[in-house]
Amino acid sequence: MVDTALISSELSAAATARAAVLRRLRGSDAVFRIITRMSVYCVLLILGGVIVSLVSGALPAMRTFGFAFLTTEVWNPVTDKFGALAPIYGTLVTSAIAMLIAVPVGLMIAIFLTEICPPWLRRPIGIAIELLAGVPSIIYGIWGLFVFAPFLQRTLQPFLIDVFGPIPVLSSVFAGPPYGIGVLTAGLILAVMVLPFVTSISRDVFDAVPPVLKEAAYGVGCTTWEVVRFIVLPYTRVGVIGGVMLGLGRALGETMAVTFVIGNAHRISASVLAPGTTISASIANEFTEAVGDLYTSALITLGLILFVITFIVLAIARYLLMRIERRIG
């Protein structure tokens, strides 16, 4: 004869134990959920923090110089006169040179990888190009300063000066003694650094073109180039532009490589062979040596300008890439 009372008490004990475990699990569940949510807010907070701290750091300079800060070329720490025009100009010109080279070359590499490369070679070449993106920027800097700049000084720059010397407008673009370092050198190095970004995104969107479209074009007798030109490129235009903008964002903000080879001169010169400066190079070079609140604040304002420019470029890039992802997926 089993004691029913004992069983029922055992059962109820088991039930309470079970309830306790469930409660604990529900509690830990909620805690885990809240912690993960906090981490998400953390990401938002960082962006907010970056903007707020840059703006607050930039306030003294903005109050002193106003909008003239954006249009003045003078940069004189001794008299506390600062203007951002030269660094902004340098940033835009170096990035333009970089994109001018990296976009066509990057696209051609992507075309090679997707259209004519034998399949077994695709992965190794793809990885090699991506390693180019993995090389730290300081390596590009030291390499650019000791190897690339002297090389340019001996070969490309005298050649450019000789060739374009007699032509009216171009002679001033390629004027002056070949220093080696300068805006052109920085732009060329940026081009190599941006190349992998353009290549890998273009390759990914090229791969996403429906094979049927390409087969149909080949079927009516198109050459490979015509398929790329009239089928692949129009179909992937948005994605390619997104990739290019992403690369542009990188080029605008790149610091170390540029700092090594640009020459750090706060002036605007028509010649791309002359030394110049960029926003990021100015900050990297001068920030630790900046004495006086206004000097520091002017450099932080430069940082804010850089952040705003790259933010806009990257936002456009992400928007375009999101659009093509939606269409493919």
Binding site: V50, S53, T255, S280, I300, L306, F307
Partner: peptide, 15 residues
């Protein structure tokens, strides 16, 4: 997050 991913690292330093 995607923007922070490619934001210039020198700005992070300033922050």
């Amino acid at each position: 997050n995607d923007i922070l991913l490619s934001a210039p690292s020198i700005v992070v330093g300033l922050f």
